[in-house]
Design a protein around this nucleic acid. Structure first.
Lengths: 122, 122
DNA sequence: CGGGATCCCTAGAGATACTG
DNA sequence: CAGTATCTCTAGGGATCCCG
């Protein structure tokens, strides 16, 4: 798995390296959306208000390159592509969960995403 | 404490809101450096290879504005300013720890910072 | 449907020099 | 010492149009 990770030489700090993989404006949301179900490109685009197709493509390619998500192409007419979390991708969910919990507890942000399945938040 | 947080209207997702506060290239490192000791501006600058004074100032101001760090000014000649974590700032350490651990475990990054005091990493 | 290609454009980072 | 002030410059995001 590790071999699939982009080797960003400028990332020496593991925190920075992690943020390089799961951080940014869109990646946490993408990972969160894929947490429970496979989604198509158009499905993801709809669930992420305001993202352009170019940006969504870029984020998905990077997540795929890092081995977090799987891209399955069905050679149909019209074409269908489904994205899902890999087993490796699932290992970041607890980390996202930690970020989410701190945001809710200390920043008073409500979780606009589906907050039912935060692992064991009371 | 919460009232001290900048109200970024564009941050609805708590994960994004958290990353707004502790994310980026420099903030995790600053918080990490301050974890065990007060540091002066020059001390921080030395421990963070390559950061410009302008950028360091900006990051410190934002962290202060968000209530994570305390800025103490000693009216001496030459002037002395010391930065330290607030109690609120200490609450993010476990989150940083989670990011750090994932980076080390799954990205194979070594912790170049002082990795002794990662809470209870075996 | 699921993108790619192109153009544009500005926020923000670096470098350098200066100051109370 | 602990920062500002100024300038420059480019990576990266939005908008638009096109393609297999």
């Amino acid at each position: 798995m590790v071999s699939q990770i982009r080797n960003n030489k400028h990332c020496q700090c593991p925190v920075e390296a992690t943020l390089e993989v799961i951080g940014g404006k869109w990646k946490p949301i993408i990972l969160w959306q894929l947490r429970t179900e496979k989604l198509r490109f158009s499905g993801l685009q709809q669930s992420m208000q305001g993202i352009s197709p170019k940006m969504l493509t870029k984020q998905l390619r990077e997540l795929e390159e890092d081995g977090l998500i799987l891209r399955e192409i069905y050679p149909e007419i019209p074409p269908r592509v489904e994205y899902s979390l890999t087993e490796f991708g699932k290992t970041v969910l607890p980390v996202l969960d930690a970020l989410c919990k701190w945001g809710i507890e200390y920043l008073g942000r409500e979780c606009l995403l589906d907050d039912q399945s935060l692992s064991d938040r009371s």
